[in-house]
């Protein structure tokens, strides 16, 4: 009787591990599809705006592989934009590798390094679509 219960438990655990293994295999499969996209830095050059925050701008320079972002969300106190391109502190350097675009923000302060990277799933002259490692979207629409 006890053995039977142990067997049942073992079978249940095995079943769970099988499900997990299947899930892992499935996810691995998806990532293999993403790797098929190879990014070209020149595709990023220009001015973009976030699709889920139309005040947030991104400007890419593909020759120097630098860029800057700023958010022109109006200040609730006076309606003035929070930031302008000229005064923004969010300058970055960037690079691409296969379908991954990596950023390092240095800010205005010395020794500041904030890295980010996103998986790009789709890129065109009009839009960049991707997500981060936890699946949060990273989508830009070209302005210029």
């Amino acid at each position: 009787m006890v053995k039977s219960e142990n067997d049942k438990l073992m079978k249940r655990k095995f079943a769970i591990w099988m499900v997990l293994a299947a899930a892992v295999l499935t996810l691995t499969s998806c990532k293999e599809k993403e790797k098929e996209l190879v990014l070209d830095p020149s595709q990023f050059a220009g001015l973009w705006v976030k699709t889920n925050n139309t005040y947030e701008y991104w400007r890419f320079n593909s020759s120097s592989m630098t860029g800057i972002t700023w958010d022109e969300t109006p200040d609730p106190d006076n309606g003035e934009p929070e930031m302008t391109e000229e005064e923004s502190n969010l300058a970055f350097s960037w690079s691409v590798e296969r379908n991954i675009v990596s950023f390092v923000w240095h800010g205005l302060m010395e020794n500041q390094s904030v890295p980010k990277y996103y998986y790009i799933t789709e890129i065109s002259s009009a839009a960049i679509v991707g997500e981060d490692e936890v699946g949060l979207p990273f989508t830009l629409r070209r302005v210029q």
């Binding site: 958010d71 106190d77 929070e82 930031m83 800010g107 904030v114």
Partner: peptide, 21 residues
Amino acid sequence: LAGEGFLNARYKPKMSTLLGS
């Protein structure tokens, strides 16, 4: 902590400018 950002006239942080680690 290392961080930077901009404040408005009431010393209220402009969240869109925060950068730090």
